[in-house]
Design a protein around this nucleic acid. Structure first.
Lengths: 106, 106
DNA sequence: AAGATATTTCCAAAATCATCGAAATATCGA
DNA sequence: TCGATATTTCGATGATTTTGGAAATATCTT
């Protein structure tokens, strides 16, 4: 994963409203939630919600599927998994860390 | 973990410069890096760097320890661990998810 | 106490972000 | 095709963020 992508994903989650939005989708699982359902849950104006959705979609953390007039939003778990991996990897690559020390001592 | 805290941590990592900074500290491990060392690695003005450090410290993701005139910065792994935990938990609490299905099927 | 080094704080400018009403667009069903 | 529902785009405004030079602060050494 490229640093720029990771940063844009973190930034998109780094807003309380968007984090609530994303978590609502995580909670919803594979069924996802329509934009309207999100609006009710979050209790914010439609246009504001739409902007927040767009940010998460642009960052690749959320996907949408149109079913008739409604748009179903879903958390993109694959993206989150690689983001978390990116945050964890390279731990202590340049120096010591407790886990490494334990490994080295063993 | 409270949503507001998670959001502030994600926001603080959601800037490319700060993410590079944080990752440099992760790479450095328990030894950490002095602010001056970070400045050389990132090649940015001292005042800009100081602002970014502050944000990460305020978010709880970085700690500092003064040794004489130099300030050693370190990644706060505990904070990162709970942030990652926060992102992962509640997965599919309201709906189905593939992993849950597998568990249910088993 | 004075000088040197490391870092922060002050201040201000430019850029970006968040917000939301109103108007526009998309899709369905009759 | 018309009306209804769902959602986005436009456009504008206030708030926040990012940036960095200059001055201030902290600590060590002599």
């Amino acid at each position: 994963m490229k640093l720029e992508l990771a940063a844009s994903q973190l930034e998109s989650l780094g807003n309380p409203t968007r984090l609530r939005l994303y978590r609502a989708l995580v909670r919803a699982g594979v069924d996802g939630l329509p934009v309207g359902g999100l609006q009710q849950k979050l209790n914010i104006p439609a246009s504001t919600l739409s902007h927040h959705c767009r940010k998460l979609i642009d960052a690749g953390l959320v996907t949408q599927e149109r079913i008739g007039t409604t748009l179903i939003c879903r958390a993109n778990y694959k993206a989150m998994t690689s983001l978390v991996g990116y945050l964890a990897d390279e731990c202590c690559a340049d120096g010591a860390c407790e886990e490494r020390r334990e490994t080295a001592e063993a």
